[in-house]
Computed example of a mutant assay.
Amino acid sequence: MTLEEAKKIIDKENYKYYNLFEDRPLKENEVGICKNDNGWKVFTTDERASIVTNSVVEFNNESDALDRFMKRVATEKILYNDNDEDNK
């Protein structure tokens, strides 16, 4: 997956709980992706906006990192019931 493909899916699905390459400070209960000296890192944050240690997965290429990131971001529809008509 490419960054542009990921952005299109995020826009189309109207995902809210993510942080794409740390474009802003971390928020609580979101999925993040960032690049560091060792490659790419995908993680989740807790209710205090801290990175959950056991949630961190590192990758040596952006495509695999974006695939994992998007799979985690997609779970928000399940976790937060964004498809539920009562929440609209």
Rank of each mutant, 00 (worst) to 15 (best):
A6M: 12
T2I: 15
N36Q: 04
E58Q: 09
K88F: 15
N38S: 00
N87H: 08
R48V: 03
G39H: 00
R72P: 03
L79Q: 12
L3K: 15
F43D: 01
D86W: 11
D86N: 14
E13T: 07
E47M: 00
K71R: 12
V56K: 08
R68L: 11
E76Q: 08
L3T: 14
Y18W: 12
V31G: 01
E30L: 03
V31D: 05
E85R: 13
N81F: 05
E13D: 05
W40R: 00
I10S: 06
E76I: 03
K16P: 03
V56E: 11
E58H: 03
Y17T: 10
Y18R: 09
D84Y: 10
N83L: 13
V73Y: 07
S55A: 08
T53W: 02
K7E: 14
E4L: 15
D86T: 11
L79S: 11
T2S: 15
P25F: 07
E22D: 10
Y15L: 08
N14P: 06
N36C: 01
N14K: 15
K27D: 09
E4F: 14
K35P: 00
C34S: 00
R68Y: 05
K35S: 03
E30K: 05
N61F: 00
T44G: 05
K77P: 02
I10F: 12
C34D: 00
I9Q: 12
S55E: 03
E30V: 08
R48L: 07
L79N: 14
S63I: 05
I78C: 12
E22S: 13
L66F: 09
V73N: 04
D37A: 04
E22T: 07
V56L: 05
Y80G: 07
F21A: 06
T45H: 07
K16H: 06
N87T: 11
A6W: 11
N14I: 10
R24D: 07
L26T: 10
E85Y: 15
K16C: 08
M70A: 01
T2K: 15
N81V: 01
K41E: 10
T53F: 09
T75H: 10
A6V: 15
T75E: 14
T53Q: 10
R48S: 04
A49N: 08
